[in-house]
Simulated assay, not measured.
Amino acid sequence: MQSNDRLERISASGVSIWLDDLSRDRLDTGELAELVSTSHVVGVTTNPTIFAAALQDGDAYADQVGDLAARGIGAEEAAIALTSDDVRSATAVLAPLYTASGFQDGRVSIEVDPRLARDTEETIAQARRLWALVDRPNVYVKIPATEQGLPAITAAISEGISVNVTLIFSLDRYRAVAQAYLDGLEKAQLAGLDLSRIASVASVFLSRIDAKIDPVLDEIGGDEAATLRGGAAIAGARLAYEAFEEIFSSPRWADLSSAGARVQRPLWASTGVKDPSYPDTRYVDELIAPHVVNTMPEKTLQAVADHARLPDGDGPVDTVHGTAVAAREHLDAVVRLGVPYERLLTELEEEGVEKFVASQNELLGTVQSELDKAASRTNGATA
């Protein structure tokens, strides 16, 4: 099977393929447009770590950084300016897909400062600001699925701000995120907004779950623990998909759907494997189903194009429907062996926020360093 055939078949099966990466160099060289053209990429996700790496790689940002430094702009405002400009440019590349998909895909995400993850009101305020700053209908504002993030999601949706909900680990939190979306849509409807232009995805993180649970299974030891390794993330995602179909076929949803509302699609995130003993395409191969998004680092995208493990034939693939019972049995077995499954998922959320905050601090440090270099060059030139 040719590489394009694998990606095309996955896409034709109802999976929206998004790239988990963005840089100005990728935009300027046309690499993003090329991936859209040849690799069925129909969306982009970003985070502070991605932007920090992009800033350190080459001179694509030099002119803008120099201008910001000359105007005395601080690191926080400069970071927002730099990232929002990249996201705005990416939305332009993807705008034709946004229109062609009926406003479903062609989306680019920009993240609320993760240091606000436990502050509802500040998250709402920055979501409004980023939405207005990028000022493109095909942008998503990323809000974490913390307890404090849930009312922020509802508030943003109620104002017509499309949201990528990030850092979902547990089934209970996935359900809470879906309810927050429905709450927001109902408020938007009462306010007279066009529900068809409001969209959301619910990002369920995968590889981090297995990286957290597998060492506990290894410590427990035994044949059963060994057979359960590497299965918790996919099992949880399959149960989230079951919940997705349940929630978005309810009478409550039918009322919103009749008013033009869109389902909040599950998005599979953290899809690059962390254990090299696992197939590098497993978080794609095992979670193909209609109405989902899979956001992949470029390395994973290339691996899927090269050797995704798909069933024989040319027709649509579905590796999710019919798996819920086995998924539930798998997680029951994990708990029965003594793995504190729910506690570990809670820890993953806490660690996820901490990692996002560290990434934001890394980005701000990188921006400050680049501003200092630009100011030094300017001062040296005028000395």
Rank of each mutant, 00 (worst) to 15 (best):
S3D: 15
N4W: 10
I10Q: 05
I10T: 05
S11T: 08
G14K: 06
S16A: 14
L19D: 01
A33W: 07
E34F: 01
T38G: 03
N47F: 13
P48E: 07
A54C: 03
Q56W: 00
A79N: 05
A81D: 11
S84M: 06
D86N: 04
R88V: 00
T91P: 00
F103E: 14
E111N: 12
L116D: 13
A117W: 12
Q126I: 07
A127D: 09
R128I: 00
W131Y: 14
L133R: 15
V134G: 02
P137L: 13
V141W: 07
I143R: 13
E147G: 04
L150C: 03
S158E: 10
I161H: 11
L182P: 01
K187S: 15
K187D: 13
Q189N: 07
S200K: 11
S200F: 11
S203W: 08
D210A: 08
E224Q: 09
R238G: 00
L239S: 07
S249H: 03
R262D: 04
A269F: 11
K274I: 02
K274V: 01
D280Y: 12
R282N: 04
Y283D: 01
L287I: 02
V292F: 02
N294F: 04
E298Y: 11
L301K: 11
R309S: 10
D314M: 03
G315A: 05
L331W: 06
E342K: 14
L344P: 13
L345I: 06
E347P: 06
E347W: 08
E349F: 04
E351G: 06
G352W: 09
S359T: 03
L363P: 00
Q368S: 13
Q368T: 07
A383V: 06
